[in-house]
Computed example of a mutant assay.
Amino acid sequence: MKFAHWLLLGCVAAMPLCASAQWQWIDKNGKKVFSDQAPPPDVPDKNILRRSGSPPPARATVDASNTDAPPAADASSSAASKAPKPTGVDKELEEKTKKAEAEQKAKEAAEAAKVAKARADNCALARQGKATVDSGIRIAKVNAQGEREIMDDTARAAEQKRLQTVIDSDCK
């Protein structure tokens, strides 16, 4: 019974080794392709990044087909110039960012329009009230106790001053 357990444990431990038989290459569109099968014959050898059973290549290695190439820095720069360079920009993220910025601008524009409309309404009401106060007709107001009282000259002057400050601030 213990032998069967050890055999099962050995099989489970060996399973990841089967997965290492992976191919990696860059297709004609410049995208990395991972597969357990060899790439199609139209893929050039320079675009095959990893072969079945071989470890992934180190970044500073020299291409095997180019034996007289200088090592390290020149080899990595020549390999980098042959392979398509990643842009480092995620298109979906860029679109989401643009959409969020557009929504934010739309919200700000709507809020600004709302404020402008409120100011225009306040301006119209203040001008109408000032015209009424300036006309000299008797104006009655309701006080805090709910009683109706007629505005005297000092109350009329204070109301004119208040309405003029509203006009000055909102009517621009």
Rank of each mutant, 00 (worst) to 15 (best):
Lys2Gln: 12
Ala4Ser: 14
Trp6Asn: 13
Gly10Arg: 04
Cys11Ser: 12
Ala13Val: 12
Met15Gln: 12
Cys18Thr: 12
Ala19Ile: 14
Ala19Leu: 15
Ser20Lys: 10
Ala21Asn: 10
Gln24Val: 08
Trp25His: 00
Ile26Cys: 06
Phe34Trp: 12
Ser35Thr: 06
Asp36Ile: 08
Asp36Gln: 15
Ala38Met: 09
Pro40Gly: 07
Pro41Met: 10
Asp42Ile: 09
Val43Gln: 00
Asn47Val: 05
Ser52Phe: 08
Pro55Asn: 15
Pro55Val: 15
Pro56Asn: 08
Pro57Met: 00
Thr61Pro: 03
Thr67Gln: 02
Thr67Gly: 01
Asp68Val: 10
Ala72His: 05
Ala72Asp: 13
Ala73Cys: 08
Ala75Glu: 02
Ser76Trp: 00
Lys82Tyr: 06
Ala83Leu: 15
Thr87Met: 10
Val89Ser: 07
Asp90Pro: 03
Lys91Tyr: 09
Lys96Pro: 04
Lys98Leu: 09
Ala100Val: 13
Ala102Gly: 03
Gln104Met: 13
Lys105Ile: 08
Glu108Tyr: 05
Glu108Ser: 09
Ala113Met: 04
Ala113Ile: 06
Asp121Thr: 15
Ala124Arg: 10
Ala126Lys: 02
Gly129Pro: 01
Gly129Tyr: 03
Lys130Asp: 06
Ala131Arg: 01
Val133Met: 00
Val133Phe: 02
Arg138Tyr: 11
Ala144Gly: 08
Gly146Arg: 04
Arg148Ser: 08
Arg148Cys: 03
Ile150Phe: 11
Met151Ser: 09
Thr154Met: 08
Ala157Ile: 04
Ala158His: 05
Glu159Pro: 00
Lys161Pro: 00
Leu163Arg: 00
Leu163His: 00
Gln164Leu: 02
Thr165Cys: 04
Thr165Asn: 05
Asp168Asn: 12
Asp168Cys: 14
